[in-house]
Design a protein around this nucleic acid. Structure first.
Lengths: 331, 331
DNA sequence: TTGTAAGCGTTATCAC
DNA sequence: GTGATAACGCTTACAA
C-alpha cells in the first residue's frame, strides 16, 4: 500500500504538495497538480483515513445509535441516514442499543473513541434524563424522541397530533371502547398517549385501558390477550408502534376474533406486513426518509458550526386508513 | 481529553509503562501497575483508538457488507454479528450495497481505508466473478452466497437441500403445477432452483414456470400477477426469498385468490409478517443467529491466523410448515 | 507556488 | 522493570 511519501517521491514533489492536491487547494500550479494526480492514479494510491483522522482530529464517519434495529422504523431511518451521509462522502457506524442504557453508554463511548464527526441517536428515557449532564464534545442530533434539555438539535414527529388523529379516526368510525398500548421506553409512547387522551376527552369518552409496556412483539401479544379476556372487551386497540401492533394482531388472531368487527386495530409505521395482513392495518406513516435525511443535514450543519443555536424540526405523520379500522357496523 | 502522556506524567512513569499496563504486559511491577491504573481512573483516561490503529496498523472494527438491509434475513444476521463482535470488544461497520456492484466496491474501499480488521460480506454475483482477482490484504468471510473461488471462508445454507425439501413438501401435499420465483442477484436463487428442479424431477413433474428476477417485493408482485393470469395457473408458488414471498402474497391477494385453495405459497426466512398473515406462510427458516455468529468466529480465527486453510461451514435450514401449503383438498 | 518539519497519540525497539 | 525515542501516514504552519 503506497503512502503519500511514495507518491511525493514518484511525482518529484513534497508530501505537502500531494496533500494540497488531495485537499483541492488552489495554490498548486496546474501542471504540478496534473503530475501528482496521474502519479496517484498510477500507484493506485488512496489516503490512509486513520492517519488523516489522527492528524486532523476528525473523521468522515458519523454514528447512528438506534434503540432497536428490528424495528422497521429504524431500519428505514438507517437507510435514509446512510444515503444522505454517503452523498457527503461520509460513512455510517450503526449501533444498536436494545433500549439498554448500558449499551447506549458503551456505544457512545465507542463512537467517541472512534472519533466520529457526529452522532444521530434515539436515546432511552433513562438517558434523556442524564442528557443535560452529558457534556459532549461531539455534535449530535436526537431523532424520534424528545429530550428535556433544549440544548440539542432534534427531528421529531408531531406525536401528540398523530395520536390524536389516529384516535379521532377510530371514534369517527364508530368505535367507543378504546384501549391503548404504549411503548414505555421513550417519550414517544407518552406523547402518542397524550393525543389519544385528548381525542377521547374531546369526544367525551373514557379510555378503557392504557398500558405502558416494553415495545416488543411479545409484550404486545400478552397485554392484548389480557385486554381481550376482560369482561368489557375493547372494540378498538390503539398501539403506539409497529412491534406492539404485530403482537396485538397475533393475540386477536389467537383469540379467533375478527378485525375490525370484533375489535379494530390501529398503529404506527409502515411495514411490509401492515399491508399484507387481512384486513390491512390502519396506521400513521412516518416520513422516515425525510426524518433520516433532515437529521443528517442538521448534523452536518452543526459539525460545520458548533455554535449555532439548536433547532427542532417537527414533521407530520400521515394517516393511512385501511381495513383494520373500517367504519363500525351496528349490531 | 487526556492523552497517554498526561497519565504518564501524573503517575510519574513513562508513556511506555502506561502502554504496557494497558496492554496487560506482565513486565510491570504490581505497585507501578496499580498506580497507573488509579491514575487512569482518576483522569478518566481512554486510549485514542485512532492513534492506536495508526500505530498498530489494525483496528478493533470489522465491516459487515450486506446486499439489502431491508431484507429481514440480513437484519437478523447483523444483530448476530454485532453481538458476537461485541463480545470480543469489536465494533461493527454496517454497509448496505443494494445489490449494486459499484456500491460494493466503494464500501470495500471505505472499509479498507478505515483499516477494519476484517470483513463479512454477501457479494453480488458480479463481484463473485471477480473475487479471484480481488487480492485482498484484509481477511474476509463470505456469507449467504457461494463464490467460485474456493480461497475464502464461507458460511452458507445448504440451499439445494432446502429448495428440495420445500418443493417436496408441496408435492407431498398434493400440489402439482408448481411455479418458482428465484432471486437473480446471487447464487442463492440458483441453488434453491436446483433443489426445486431436482424435487420435481424425482416426482416426474415439470415446472410450470421458473422466473429469475431481482429480489424485490415489487418484482415478486408483478411476476406473480403475470403467472396468475396465465391460462394454466400454477397451484403453488415457490419463492426463493422473503421479499419475493411478500410480493407474491400481495399479488395473490390482489387477484382475490385464496391461499392455499387456489394457490399455495412457500418461501424462505422467518419474518414478522410470515406468521401474521392468514394463512401463515410455510417457509424454510435459516439459522440466522448461528450464521452470523459462525461467520464472526471464522473471521476472528482468520484474523488470528491468516495462513490457515479456508473452510466452508454449511448449515441446514428448518422447514416450518404452516397454512399456506396445507394439504390440497380434491375438487 | 513549493518545501521543511512539527506533531496528532499510540506502540515497539532498544537500551539501561 | 522501566525509560527514551522512533515510527505509523497524514496535515499545516512557517519559510523560502
Amino acid at each position: 500500500m503506497p503512502s503519500i511519501k511514495d507518491v511525493a517521491r514518484a511525482a518529484g514533489v513534497s508530501t505537502a504538495t500531494v496533500s494540497r492536491v488531495l485537499a483541492g487547494s488552489d495554490h498548486v500550479k496546474e501542471e504540478t497538480r496534473q503530475r501528482v494526480l496521474s502519479t496517484i492514479e498510477l500507484l493506485n494510491y488512496r489516503p490512509n483515513l486513520v492517519a488523516r483522522s489522527l492528524r486532523s482530529q476528525k473523521s468522515a464517519r458519523i454514528g447512528l445509535v438506534v434503540s432497536d434495529i428490528r424495528n422497521p422504523f429504524f431500519t428505514a431511518i438507517s437507510r435514509a441516514v446512510e444515503d444522505a451521509a454517503y452523498e457527503q462522502g461520509y460513512s455510517v457506524l450503526l449501533c444498536n442499543t436494545d433500549e439498554d442504557p448500558a449499551k447506549e453508554e458503551l456505544y457512545l463511548n465507542v463512537l467517541h473513541d472512534e472519533s466520529v464527526a457526529g452522532i444521530i441517536f434515539s436515546p432511552t428515557q433513562q438517558f434523556s434524563a442524564r442528557l443535560s449532564t452529558f457534556k459532549s464534545d461531539i455534535p449530535f442530533v436526537i431523532i424520534d424522541r424528545a429530550v428535556n434539555a433544549a440544548q440539542a438539535d432534534m427531528v421529531l414527529l408531531d406525536n401528540v397530533a398523530a395520536g390524536y388523529e389516529l384516535t379521532t379516526h377510530l371514534i369517527q368510525n364508530g368505535y367507543t371502547r378504546l384501549a391503548g398500548l404504549f411503548g414505555n421506553a421513550s417519550t414517544t409512547g407518552k406523547e402518542r398517549n397524550k393525543g389519544f387522551r385528548k381525542a377521547l376527552e374531546d369526544y367525551q369518552l373514557k379510555p378503557l385501558a392504557e398500558q405502558f409496556i416494553p415495545p416488543r412483539i411479545q409484550q404486545g401479544y400478552e397485554t392484548t390477550l389480557m385486554l381481550l379476556d376482560q369482561p368489557n372487551r375493547p372494540d378498538a386497540i390503539f398501539t403506539s408502534n409497529s412491534l406492539l401492533t404485530a403482537g396485538a394482531f397475533q393475540a386477536i388472531r389467537y383469540r379467533n376474533l375478527k378485525v375490525p368487527d370484533d375489535v379494530a386495530l390501529v398503529g404506527f409505521d409502515e411495514t411490509t406486513w401492515g399491508a399484507l395482513v387481512d384486513p390491512p392495518i390502519t396506521l400513521i406513516a412516518q416520513p422516515t426518509e425525510e426524518i433520516g435525511r433532515t437529521a443528517t443535514e442538521l448534523l452536518f450543519q452543526r459539525i460545520e458550526d458548533p455554535g449555532r443555536s439548536p433547532r427542532t424540526v417537527i414533521l407530520k405523520g400521515k394517516l393511512i386508513a385501511r381495513g383494520s379500522s373500517a367504519p363500525r357496523v351496528n349490531k
